[in-house]
């Protein structure tokens, strides 16, 4: 009888405790950046793995401080693709530094979690995160809302679609292809469709499931009378561009890709994001916060507009597909053929 009573009491107290708990939003109205030593800011950087783009972003971030004459001490940690290390490093970085940077979604969320669980309110910056809202890092891209902001590597889809008209003025019908299960790709595909229709183009959308059906889906859509095919930043397709290339070559379809490596591997034209620049932009945001010019909740998430991207073409792939671009495009572009 006694043990039953005890059980009931502990159950009730548990529920009571749980209901008055929960994540507390940080009150940003009273928020202030308070470094341990204002003359030498301690900056922690968390990178999940060794990767060219991520390293470039990190270097860009660090260079922003030098460019703005802000003295910092950098504490850089690489998790080496171990989740356990990612978690422990995030906790340590948050505990030891005045502000932190997460490169990529995983690292940024790790820093956010470490921060919440330690009850800290120091600013957190992210870079190379495609969708910060979906990742729970910010309330919205325009108004992040709390102590986290940064730069997103979402490619400028609208500008990339506009590129099609620039390359093939007479185009009337285009296709968009992506992998069904990649949420990120679907978002870009929807954006692409909207912009294309705005430009007066008819749009066909084709999806594939995995590596095995890329070739057949590509063949189907390329032979359906389209003049150009848009491929967003899609991990599955990026890894198997050669399967798409065959269909492009056979049907002489222009391929605009979302990023550089796909263009190199089988696509033709792209507006690419410079990851070092991306990191630099996040660094500038950090400088703003350090100087007290703005709070993270008010700094919108930075995204590249098309004009800030580098126009790239692959002349080798264009030659294989038998396509000639307008001279002005070729002149303005950087040739990244393998």
């Amino acid at each position: 009888m006694k043990s039953k009573k005890l059980l009931l009491l502990s159950a009730i107290s548990l529920v009571a405790l749980a209901s008055c708990g929960g994540n507390r939003r940080i009150d940003m109205s009273t928020w202030k950046f308070s470094p341990e030593n204002p003359d030498n800011i301690k900056v922690g950087i968390l990178q999940p793995i060794e990767h060219g783009a991520l390293t470039a972003a990190r270097l860009g971030f660090v260079s922003a401080f030098e460019a703005s004459n802000v003295k910092v001490t950098i504490d850089y940690q690489n998790a080496g693709s171990s989740s356990s290390d990612l978690n422990t490093l995030a906790k340590n970085l948050v505990a030891n530094n005045d502000l932190t940077l997460g490169i990529g979604t995983g690292a940024s969320v790790a820093l956010q979690s470490a921060s919440i669980y330690a009850g800290k309110t120091n600013p957190i910056f992210f870079t190379a995160v495609t969708d910060a809202v979906d990742a729970g890092l910010v309330d919205s891209d325009a108004a992040p809302g709390q102590n986290i902001t940064g730069s997103s590597d979402l490619n400028p889809v609208a500008d990339q679609i506009a590129l099609i008209k620039r390359c093939i003025p007479s185009a009337t019908k285009i296709g968009v292809m992506y992998t069904q299960s990649e949420q990120n790709s679907k978002v870009q595909a929807d954006l692409a469709k909207a912009k294309a229709e705005q430009e007066g183009l008819a749009v066909t959308i084709a999806t594939c499931n995995d590596a095995s059906d890329i070739a057949s889906v590509a063949q189907q859509i390329c032979s359906s009378g389209i003049s150009a095919l848009f491929i967003p930043t899609d991990n599955n397709l990026a890894a198997h561009m050669d399967s798409v290339k065959a269909a492009l070559d056979a049907n002489h379809v222009l391929c605009v890709t979302g990023e550089t490596s796909s263009c190199q591997q089988g696509g033709h034209v792209t507006l690419s994001i410079d990851y070092e620049q991306l990191g630099y932009k996040a660094g500038l945001q950090a400088v703003q916060v350090i100087k007290g010019e703005a709070k993270p909740c008010d700094i919108p998430v930075f995204k590249f507009a098309g004009a800030e991207c580098e126009l790239q073409i692959s002349s080798a792939n264009l030659a294989d597909a038998g396509i000639t671009l307008p001279q002005e495009v070729v002149d303005a572009a950087k040739d990244i053929s393998k």
Binding site: G22, N23, I49, T105, Y117, N184
Partner: peptide
């Protein structure tokens, strides 16, 4: 809901409003 294994994309994360068994008891 993903098909590709990569380390830094295709991460499923929780939003600030979603509580874990730890944060359910947090007082700040």
């Amino acid at each position: 809901g993903s098909t590709v294994e990569t380390m830094f994309t295709n991460v499923v994360t929780l939003s600030y409003t979603q509580d874990t068994i730890y944060s359910l008891f947090f007082v700040g």
